[in-house]
Measured scan of single mutants.
Amino acid sequence: ETFPLDVLVNTAAEDLPRGVDPSRKENFLSDEDFKAVFGMTRSAFANLPLWKQQNLKKEKGLF
């Protein structure tokens, strides 16, 4: 299941849709939104070091 970017960005855990893991908001973006937000594919993002993934998520309001 995916959700629009505005539902996930800068949203407190208690305000997220049911079933969304607040530590993994990026997994609930569509592939198109994911690429638009991070400028890379999911596989490229997954290959980044964890610290870099976290920094990007913070920068984009998805942490």
Rank of each mutant, 00 (worst) to 15 (best):
E1I: 15
E1N: 14
E1K: 14
E1P: 14
E1Q: 15
E1V: 15
E1R: 10
T2I: 11
T2R: 07
T2C: 09
T2V: 10
T2H: 09
T2Y: 15
F3K: 03
F3I: 07
F3Q: 05
F3M: 03
F3V: 03
F3P: 02
F3E: 03
P4A: 08
P4Y: 03
P4D: 07
P4H: 05
P4G: 06
P4E: 05
P4C: 06
P4K: 05
P4N: 09
L5Q: 04
L5T: 04
L5A: 04
L5E: 02
L5D: 03
D6S: 14
D6N: 12
D6C: 11
D6V: 08
D6P: 07
D6G: 09
V7C: 11
V7D: 06
V7M: 14
V7Y: 15
V7R: 08
L8K: 03
L8V: 04
L8N: 04
L8G: 03
L8T: 04
L8F: 03
L8H: 04
L8Q: 01
V9T: 09
V9P: 02
V9Y: 06
V9S: 06
V9K: 11
N10D: 08
N10E: 07
N10I: 06
N10L: 06
N10A: 08
N10R: 02
N10S: 09
N10F: 07
N10M: 07
T11R: 05
T11V: 14
T11Q: 07
T11D: 07
T11I: 10
T11W: 09
T11P: 05
A12H: 11
A12K: 13
A12Y: 07
A12W: 07
A12L: 10
A12T: 07
A12E: 08
A12N: 11
A13K: 10
A13G: 08
A13P: 15
A13E: 15
E14W: 05
E14K: 09
E14M: 07
E14N: 08
E14S: 08
E14P: 09
D15G: 06
L16Q: 06
L16V: 07
L16G: 05
L16T: 06
L16P: 13
L16F: 07
L16Y: 15
L16W: 05
P17G: 03
P17F: 02
P17M: 02
P17N: 03
P17Y: 03
P17V: 02
P17L: 04
R18H: 15
R18G: 15
R18S: 15
G19H: 09
G19F: 09
G19Q: 10
G19V: 14
G19C: 13
G19I: 10
G19P: 09
V20P: 07
V20D: 07
V20F: 05
V20W: 05
V20N: 06
V20Y: 05
V20Q: 05
V20R: 03
V20S: 04
D21E: 06
D21I: 04
D21L: 02
D21T: 04
D21Q: 05
D21P: 02
D21A: 03
D21M: 02
P22C: 07
P22M: 04
P22L: 04
S23H: 15
S23K: 11
S23C: 15
S23F: 14
S23V: 08
S23W: 13
S23A: 13
R24A: 09
R24T: 07
R24E: 05
K25E: 04
K25R: 13
K25G: 03
K25Q: 04
K25W: 05
E26G: 01
E26Q: 04
E26A: 01
E26P: 02
E26L: 01
E26C: 04
N27P: 02
N27A: 14
N27M: 13
N27L: 12
N27G: 07
N27H: 12
N27R: 08
F28D: 04
F28R: 06
F28G: 04
F28Q: 06
F28Y: 15
F28C: 06
F28E: 05
F28S: 13
L29S: 01
L29G: 01
L29M: 07
L29Q: 01
L29I: 09
S30K: 06
S30N: 11
S30W: 01
S30A: 07
S30C: 06
S30F: 01
S30G: 06
S30T: 12
S30E: 03
S30H: 07
D31W: 02
D31I: 07
D31H: 09
D31R: 04
D31L: 08
D31V: 08
E32S: 11
E32W: 10
E32L: 10
E32V: 12
E32A: 12
D33P: 00
D33R: 01
D33C: 05
D33N: 06
D33A: 05
D33H: 04
F34D: 00
F34M: 01
F34T: 00
F34Y: 02
F34H: 01
F34E: 00
F34W: 03
F34G: 00
F34L: 02
K35S: 13
K35I: 14
K35Y: 13
K35T: 13
K35L: 14
K35D: 15
K35C: 14
K35R: 13
K35H: 15
A36P: 00
A36D: 13
A36K: 11
A36T: 12
V37D: 01
V37Q: 04
V37F: 05
V37K: 02
V37M: 06
V37W: 02
F38K: 00
F38Y: 02
F38T: 01
F38G: 00
F38I: 02
F38R: 00
G39V: 04
G39R: 10
G39D: 13
G39W: 04
G39Q: 14
G39T: 05
G39S: 11
G39A: 11
M40P: 00
M40A: 00
M40T: 03
M40Y: 05
M40D: 00
M40E: 00
M40F: 04
T41M: 10
T41V: 09
T41R: 05
T41W: 05
T41L: 10
T41C: 09
T41A: 09
R42T: 04
R42F: 06
R42C: 04
R42V: 06
R42E: 02
R42G: 02
S43Y: 12
S43I: 13
S43H: 13
S43L: 13
S43N: 13
S43E: 13
S43G: 12
S43T: 12
A44E: 14
A44F: 10
A44N: 10
A44H: 12
A44V: 14
F45C: 00
F45H: 00
F45G: 00
F45V: 00
F45M: 01
A46E: 10
A46W: 13
A46T: 11
A46P: 00
A46Q: 13
A46I: 12
A46Y: 11
N47V: 11
N47R: 12
N47F: 10
N47G: 11
N47M: 11
N47S: 14
N47W: 10
L48W: 02
L48K: 04
L48Y: 05
L48I: 06
L48N: 00
L48Q: 06
L48T: 01
P49F: 00
P49M: 02
P49V: 02
L50P: 13
L50D: 10
L50S: 11
L50G: 12
L50Y: 12
W51R: 11
W51F: 10
W51N: 09
W51G: 08
W51M: 10
W51H: 10
K52P: 00
K52Q: 14
K52R: 13
K52M: 14
K52Y: 13
K52H: 13
K52W: 11
K52A: 08
K52D: 11
K52F: 14
Q53C: 01
Q53I: 05
Q54A: 12
Q54I: 15
Q54P: 00
Q54F: 08
Q54G: 07
N55E: 14
N55I: 12
N55W: 12
N55T: 14
N55V: 11
N55L: 12
L56E: 06
L56K: 08
L56V: 07
L56A: 06
L56G: 00
L56R: 01
K57Y: 04
K57N: 02
K57V: 06
K57C: 07
K57W: 06
K57S: 03
K58R: 12
K58G: 07
K58Q: 11
K58S: 11
K58Y: 10
K58E: 11
K58P: 01
K58M: 12
E59G: 07
E59C: 08
E59A: 12
E59Q: 12
E59H: 06
E59M: 10
E59F: 06
K60A: 15
K60F: 09
K60T: 10
K60D: 01
K60I: 08
K60R: 09
K60L: 10
G61Y: 03
G61M: 05
G61K: 05
G61S: 04
G61V: 01
G61T: 01
L62K: 02
L62Y: 05
L62Q: 03
L62F: 07
L62N: 03
L62S: 02
L62G: 04
L62R: 02
L62T: 01
F63V: 09
F63Q: 14
F63R: 03
F63M: 13
F63K: 05
F63D: 15
